[in-house]
Design a protein around this nucleic acid. Structure first.
Length: 643
RNA sequence: GCCCCGGUAGCUCAGCUGGUCAGAGCGCCGCCUUGGUAAGGCGGAGGUCGCGGGUUCGAAUCCCGCCCGGGGCUCCA
């Protein structure tokens, strides 16, 4: 007899041929997995089934089904309001769902979206049964042709399957693989978020579709929380906060899109980050190098980049020779390596550069600091022998972990991109190279205790890679570090070393950028902390604030002492009430404010106010410095660091 | 690049069915206030309404082109 496991872990024995939903109290399950196959809750227990798992919103499949059904409700609502809308596709996405429509040149207004949302609520209230039907492909083509759903017909014509499934809820029928919730009433709290245009099948030669995005949850609180998080993310937007705190600007109308100007305070933070990176890399056995910003395009002809990268490069001609601004640093690092004959004894060699590169990204993908045209990579290339590869990867991961934790990120997600073993001909390098490299990556991660996901077939043609995503303070994921093996460039540039037996061998090359780009990382950091940088990164660590002009001299004295000790401090010389100036200090997100008035002058103390914590009372300047000194230093310069 | 939306003072935005439509708040400057832990009061300066062209007696407002920004552009029956 098949057994059925409810989301709460309860196990029931069930009868084949009976409906799964009959064993599941309403609200306790959304979709079922029969021996690993996802099916509708309203389907029957198949003959020969052994295990049926009922899934709820806590499972990825449960959420996906929930959102997928939500997208059908969205489509039904749009069809009711705009009968001439033609259906495109409507999947669940990572968070939420969308459905796209051909609106005959019309686009949705905010008012339309509200009406759609209201209609969706009505459909949910109607609690329409969702019925699966299987028909022949031909039958389906006829049905959708009759309905004028040309896109559905197109999809059907591209399909191979002789039988397809339809899902019907009330008057609405859609071509869909499913599974779906049992009825529209299973969806509880929905919100239409925004609309945008896109192309049918993502191809700009195809008709324009109008996409409507939405989200839904079983609990009101979940929806509220989601909306609050979106709101919070919007408030943290680095493109708003950055200029607000006077850190940087991007006056694109004057200098062009995708380029950054670093203002004094932003430049300070950047310099602190860069100095920290340089010290740490030197400590970890890297050599610091510099390379030029331009070179003959021929250099990238050798590297092979020019062929498929040319449209992203800034190319210009001088003296009849074509030059390019560098879109990457790799070739230069290789040239450093090749400047002399290398012995296996000196490997691994690690070259590090804060390399500023320019890439002509398509205008539509630019996004503040996160996707710019000019940016600086924390780029390194490691040349090693195959024997030392795994240990070297392990070291890189350890360094990555140290850096991320130093910047306040504790949660990571790791992916390994491997080749597609069915198409080895699409990749550079031998099968042996790939197996050794991929297992080196996996072993290194395992040793460091990381769980990871293997993305088969996702590797570049030139080698497998590790990508590290981190999770920020409001739960968003960011792809940052990348550690890539390269079998291609060492061959193209003939990167070799002399081995112990006197033979010349090709070195293994690792590209790695851990922060990715300083600009992008800075943007993420800014959003992660919502501008409240930790003390060691804060552009102004301490503001000295005299209560009145009488106390200015004393305040100046305190400031001088702080500056002499190397603390980044400034003096508030504004007029206005004390309350106003404290507010100003808070809004500027200055971590520490020292207030100096009559009491402090006479007792020789300072009144300490910490951002977010308020008034901490009075203490001597020495006590204050002792208390915060360590925190003001970069992580590698604190006394608890032993290495 | 393509589609949709947008560009008004340093910032956030109102005005936009053509005619006191050059406005508000914040910020800035000045004066008064010298204040004890997140907004004291009064006054003032500040704008080629993104740029160029067109329609009109008249354009921030309507039309066209360009520049720049925002949201998207298979996670996919």
């Amino acid at each position: 007899m098949p057994k059925l496991i409810l989301p709460d872990g309860k196990v029931l024995t069930v009868e084949p041929g009976s409906r799964i939903i009959d064993y599941v109290p309403r609200g306790k399950g959304l979709v079922a997995k029969v021996d690993g196959r996802l099916v509708d809750l309203s389907s029957e227990v198949p003959e020969g089934a052994s295990e049926i798992k009922v899934l709820d919103f806590n499972s990825p499949e449960g959420r996906e089904t929930y959102w997928h059904t939500s997208s059908h409700i969205l489509a039904q609502a749009v069809k009711r309001l705009f009968p001439r809308a033609k259906l495109g596709i409507g999947p669940a996405i990572e968070e939420g769902f969308f459905y796209e429509f051909d609106m005959e040149g019309r686009s949705f207004t905010p008012d339309d979206l509200q009406r759609i949302e209201d209609e969706m609520r009505r459909i949910i209230k109607e609690d329409l049964l969702i019925i699966r039907k299987e028909v022949s492909r031909q039958e389906a083509i006829e049905l959708f042709s009759k309905m004028g759903e040309v896109y559905k017909v197109e999809l059907l014509q591209e399909m191979q399957e002789p039988v397809v499934s339809l899902y019907q809820q009330g008057e609405f029928v859609d071509l869909c693989r499913g599974p779906h919730l049992p009825s529209t009433g299973y969806v509880k709290h929905i919100k239409v978020l925004y609309s945008s245009s896109s192309y049918w099948k993502g191809d700009e030669r195809n008709p324009v579709m109008q996409r409507v995005y939405g989200i839904s949850f079983p609990e009101k609180e979940m929806l509220d929380q989601y909306l609050k998080r979106r709101e919070e993310a919007k408030k943290r937007d680095h493109r708003v906060v950055g200029p607000q705190l006077d850190l940087f600007s991007m006056p694109s109308e004057v200098i062009g899109p995708g380029l950054v100007i670093w203002h004094p305070k932003g430049a300070r933070i950047r310099r602190i980050i860069e100095d920290f990176l340089v010290r740490v890399h030197l400590k970890w056995g890297y050599e610091l190098i510099y390379s030029p910003h331009i070179a003959y395009t021929n250099l990238w002809k050798i590297s092979g980049h020019l062929n498929y990268y040319r449209e992203f490069m800034y190319v210009f001609e001088k003296d009849g020779i074509e030059h390019a601004v560098k879109p990457m640093n790799c070739p230069f690092h290789i040239l450093v390596y090749k400047s002399k004959k290398r012995s296996y004894r000196e490997l691994p060699l690690r070259f590090f550069e804060l390399g500023t590169v320019y890439r002509f990204e398509r205008s539509g993908v630019l996004h503040g600091l996160l996707r710019a045209r000019g940016f600086t990579q924390d780029d390194a290339h490691i040349f090693t022998t195959p024997e030392k590869l795994e240990e070297e990867i392990s070291k890189v991961i350890e360094l990555d972990e140290y850096l991320m934790k130093s910047f306040g990120f504790d949660e990571f997600k790791v992916e390994i991109s491997t080749w597609d073993p069915n198409h080895p001909e699409e990749y550079m390098g031998s099968e042996e190279d790939w197996h050794r490299a991929q297992s080196a990556l996996e072993e290194a991660l395992k040793k460091r205790g990381y769980s990871y996901e293997v993305m088969e077939g996702e590797a570049a043609f030139y080698g497998p890679k590790i990508d590290v995503k981190l999770v920020d303070s409001i739960g968003r994921e960011w792809q940052l570090s990348t550690i890539q093996l390269d079998f291609n460039l060492p061959k193209r540039f003939n990167v070799t070393y002399v081995d112990a037996d006197g033979s010349e061998k090709t070195a293994v090359m690792i590209h790695r950028a851990l922060l990715g780009s300083i600009e992008r990382f800075f943007g993420i950091l800014l959003e992660h902390y919502a501008g409240n940088f930790p003390l060691w990164l804060a552009p102004i660590q301490v503001r000295v604030l005299p209560v009145s002009e009488r106390h200015l001299a004393k305040a100046q004295e305190v400031l001088n002492e702080l500056v002499r000790k190397g603390v980044r401090a400034d003096l508030d010389v504004e007029s206005g009430t004390l309350g106003y100036r404290i507010r100003e200090s808070e809004l500027q997100k200055i971590p520490l404010t020292l207030i100096i008035g009559d009491k402090e002058v006479s007792s020789g103390t300072v009144s300490v106010r910490q951002k977010g914590k308020g008034n901490l009372g009075s203490m001597t300047l020495e006590e204050f410095l002792k208390r915060y000194w360590e925190e003001m230093l970069p992580p590698d310069q604190r006394s608890e660091v032993l290495s």
